[in-house]
Simulated scan of single mutants.
Amino acid sequence: MSLFREIHKRSRIVIPQVLGAALVAYFAYHTIEGDRGVWAWIHLTQNLQAKQTEMLSVQSEREELEARVALLRPDNLDPDLLEERARDVLNYGRENEYLVIQQR
């Protein structure tokens, strides 16, 4: 009977400590591995940097295209650009003229 009392007495001391350690382990695990944990934050930060770089690239390409479109507007028409676009769209060239096609 004394063995049972000893186990019962020590279990009152050990059980709260084990539960506390389990609770700390649970929250520590989810702080690192959870949906909003450290690894997810690092992954989102890397994705954000990649998307910002891509956005800057697209913005510069858009500015270049807007500049070319501005040259084709009726109030500010560039004859050389108009001729270039007409030849490209109509597939037209002059005699003794060589065409060099560049892929973009």
Rank of each mutant, 00 (worst) to 15 (best):
H30F: 15
E33C: 06
G34Y: 06
G34F: 04
G37T: 01
G37A: 03
W39Q: 04
W39A: 01
W39G: 01
I42W: 10
I42S: 03
I42K: 15
H43R: 14
H43K: 14
L44T: 05
L44Q: 14
L44A: 08
L44M: 11
T45K: 07
L48H: 12
A50K: 10
A50G: 04
T53M: 08
E54F: 02
M55G: 03
M55H: 13
L56C: 01
S57E: 13
V58M: 04
V58W: 09
Q59V: 10
Q59P: 01
Q59R: 14
S60V: 09
S60N: 13
S60Q: 14
E61F: 03
R62Q: 12
E63I: 08
E64V: 07
E64M: 08
L65E: 02
A67Q: 06
R68N: 02
V69Y: 02
A70V: 00
L71H: 02
L72C: 03
D75K: 15
N76C: 02
N76Y: 07
N76E: 05
L77C: 06
D78E: 08
P79Q: 12
P79W: 07
D80W: 02
D80Q: 12
D80C: 01
D80I: 04
L81P: 00
L82Q: 13
E83F: 04
E84P: 00
E84D: 10
E84Y: 09
A86T: 08
A86E: 06
A86I: 03
R87Y: 02
V89M: 06
N91M: 06
Y92G: 00
G93L: 09
R94A: 05
N96A: 07
V100T: 13
V100S: 06
Q102D: 13
Q103N: 15
